[in-house]
């Protein structure tokens, strides 16, 4: 059994479960961009209520390695989202998408890490929590961290403006 076959089987199982059960509170949807390639997914994430992201629907690309789930997938918002834990290019910096050894921005020791017991669903739930509660300890967008810390109304204004721009209103 090749690793790609294992990864494919796992991805199909996850996709089947996601479509059958749906996400809690419809917080997101996710699935392969094309049925021909199960290793590239798109996720649509609803901006959580009572946050500046409310009302937005954010598209992200999930890229799976051929040895998934031994290795985590990568997640990139396209267009990039203004958030302390999202790089300016849209890549998400969250501990659950890193193995214990990979520690680019000094996550807290107690933060959750990638292991094959995680899944697309668990990661996306973590990303929704991250949107609601940024983690300034492991910031990815330093400018955004600064605005968030020093001028919260300005941070919220930028986020809302970005959502309006995305929606074209």
């Amino acid at each position: 059994m090749s690793s790609r076959a294992t990864a494919l089987r796992r991805l199909m199982t996850e996709y089947k479960q996601l479509t059958a059960n749906g996400a809690p509170d419809n917080m997101f949807t996710a699935g392969p961009i094309s049925e021909d390639n199960f290793f590239e997914w798109e996720a649509l994430i609803m901006g959580p209520k009572d946050t500046p992201y409310e009302g937005g629907v954010f598209a992200a690309k999930l890229t799976f390695p051929s040895d998934y789930p031994l290795s985590p997938f990568k997640m990139k918002f396209d267009p990039p989202l203004f958030h302390p834990n999202i790089y300016k290019d849209g890549n998400v910096c969250i501990s659950i998408l890193h193995a214990p050894g990979d520690d680019p921005t000094g996550y807290e020791l107690s933060s959750e890490r990638w292991s094959p017991v995680q899944s697309v669903e668990k990661v996306l739930l973590s990303v929704v929590s991250m949107l609601a509660e940024p983690n300034l300890e492991s910031g990815a967008n330093i400018d955004c961290c600064k605005v968030y810390r020093e001028n919260r109304p300005e941070f919220e204004r930028i986020v809302r403006q970005q959502i309006r721009d995305m929606l074209g209103v």
């Binding site: 031994l70 193995a99 050894g101 107690s110 990638w114 292991s115």
Partner: peptide, 13 residues
């Protein structure tokens, strides 16, 4: 539970 999540199930531990 916490020990297992962080030091048993995780890779390279």
């Amino acid at each position: 539970k916490e020990f297992c999540e962080r030091f048993v199930e995780a890779a390279g531990k």
